[in-house]
């Protein structure tokens, strides 16, 4: 029986590759968005405007304080209420973007705050405006602190894409669900799903470890 299921699994392997492709697509698009948004938010979070800081602080707290699966449902179900029809794929990206940018915001703000006030002052005193201070003096130094946890966060975000299967996005985890109905070898099916996630995240884990060691010196 096992052998039979295994050959069925091999047969429908392209289906898994499609799931992997969808997972990669969700992961890639949301990592890029989260990074851009996370940096912008993180920069404002470490800025001087108290109101902006509070608002971002609350946003981050909300994201951290609620389960991601609940956030996905809120976005998927609340937007139609407000007259916006959102399909599963864009809803998934939106949810990932909101969640991921909050975590990256904290990492970026932490990195920026690790740079001494003197660096800002030296750059300001020489006539650089705020954007130039950040671009040339603060961020290049902060990146050393930001990079290792950022790559670590990427791994978490990739794994979190599995959550969007609940609203029907046909990514890896959903492919697993659908398959297991037809091939009732749960262990076999989900081992394959797990292995495919690992193929994407393992290089990033290695990169994160490498960066941590390199930045430590």
């Amino acid at each position: 029986m096992m052998a039979f299921y295994f050959s069925r699994l091999v047969e429908i392997f392209p289906f898994f590759l499609k799931g992997l492709w969808m997972t990669s697509k969700v992961a890639f698009i949301s990592l890029v968005t989260c990074t851009l948004l996370g940096f912008i938010l993180g920069i404002f979070r470490s800025g001087k405007n108290k109101i902006v800081k509070r608002v971002i602080g609350f946003y981050v707290a909300f994201v951290r304080g609620t389960p991601f699966v609940v956030q996905v449902f809120i976005i998927f179900f609340i937007l139609p209420e407000w007259g916006m029809q959102l399909k599963a794929f864009p809803a998934a990206l939106l949810a990932m973007g909101i969640m991921g940018s909050a975590f990256i915001c904290e990492i970026v703000a932490g990195g920026i705050s690790s740079i001494s006030k003197g660096q800002w002052e030296a750059a300001a005193a020489s006539g650089l405006n705020l954007v130039q201070q950040l671009r040339w003096v603060i961020l290049p130094q902060a990146m050393k602190v930001i990079l290792p946890p950022l790559v670590g966060q990427y791994v978490l975000l990739i794994k979190d894409t599995s959550v969007v299967s609940v609203i029907g996005v046909m990514e890896l985890t959903r492919v697993g669900w659908v398959t297991v109905v037809r091939i009732p070898e749960g262990l076999m099916v989900f081992s394959l799903v797990g292995a495919l996630y690992f193929v994407i995240s393992y290089p990033l884990i290695l990169l994160s470890n490498y960066l941590e060691q390199k930045m430590a010196v």
Partner: peptide, 17 residues
């Protein structure tokens, strides 16, 4: 204003990178 003023700090504050 600042383009015409050089400032030297007690702790140097050179850009280490």
């Amino acid at each position: 204003l600042r383009a015409d003023i050089g400032f030297v700090f007690q702790q140097f504050h050179l850009y280490p990178h």
